[in-house]
Write a protein that binds this DNA or RNA. Structure first.
Lengths: 174, 174
DNA sequence: CTTGACCCTGTACCTTGGTAGAGGGTGTAG
DNA sequence: CTACACCCTCTACCAAGGTACAGGGTCAAG
């Protein structure tokens, strides 16, 4: 308000927001943070609201939102009033995925602890029980709750949608 | 043993391992899974140990190991005997990073829950408390334990190592 | 020999969130 | 006018773990 004025160049904005200049331009490419105006030379100028927006982006990122999701939140913010419940729902949805990820990781941690104990038990290490376990057809404790996005919306690779090269035809007893 | 024999083409191996053909070739590029032999035509052939190795890779991935780490585990496996403690240490290290990630996510979940409650409290939604919070200079609860790799080993973007374009010089009260 | 499924190599593309550099223009102090 | 920090656009690159496609060769059945 009273120390440098609200109009900043990209370098000043980046500094104030704790990001790099390239990052600000990257956000612009992603249409998350447009410059308030431009000099005739093309220099970007940012007002105080741009810094607010930049902080919004960084904070939301710290909460685990992706830039795509943040774009949605910012659009909600533009259309003001009574949209608060949508924001709340977004936060709720994010919480659900975060909790799912926590559960996955805890299941993972349990398996790892089991493995570690199986070694600590003082067996002769000639046949490492961990390495042996890793060769089993499928690992026990597959309690993946899929708390995120799957890689390809394909969902399980046994489908018929294989494009050109993937599966064999019939030769099961050749 | 009695149904198809241990020698397989890449398609059969991929099928048995639950991955795509391209993925097997990708593992080969990464030197994780070499074909047992080749036909004169260049066709890859895989023995039973290749399937074991493929399962090893997939299981270790499911435990959160990266392909790079798996490469290390596989090399340990080659040099047998008395290396079990190295495997155990790898598992232990992985457990530490998994636990750190869990802590981060739990901190995140707490913030999200706080936000969600701040809305549920029945305030007039005209000024959404979540969106307002997201505009604060820095979010509270920055207890990141950094239990993984940082993006760039840069560690804080206020350093002097900015290559060519990033920071302003002196103009703070211009 | 033809067909069709399968295989080969090589290369490009995908996602996410940026970084890095080339090549050149601008703002301003001295 | 010179210098220099800063800015511009555009393009390429990074990790990680694949996926996809082009263009062509092979295997086995019919």
């Amino acid at each position: 308000m009273g120390e440098a004025g609200p109009i900043r160049t990209i370098g000043q904005l980046a500094e104030a927001g704790g990001v790099g200049v390239q990052t600000v331009r990257y956000y612009e490419r992603r249409r998350l943070l447009l410059p308030t105006s431009r000099l005739p030379s093309g220099y970007r100028l940012y007002g105080a609201e741009a810094l607010q927006r930049l902080r919004f982006i960084r904070n939301a990122q710290a909460l685990g939102f992706t830039l795509r999701e943040i774009e949605g939140l910012l659009n909600l913010r533009v259309s003001s009033a009574a949209r608060c419940d949508e924001v709340q729902q977004a936060a709720q949805a994010k919480l659900v995925t975060v909790e799912a990820k926590i559960r996955d990781l805890e299941a993972l941690a349990r398996v790892l602890r089991t493995f570690i104990r199986s070694c600590r038990a003082g067996r002769p290490t000639e046949h490492c029980p961990i390495l042996a376990s890793l060769e089993s057809p499928t690992l026990e404790s597959n309690s993946k709750s899929n708390g995120g996005k799957s890689k390809k919306s394909n969902g399980g690779r046994g489908g018929k949608g294989r494009a050109k090269e993937n599966q064999r035809r019939h030769k099961s007893g050749g």
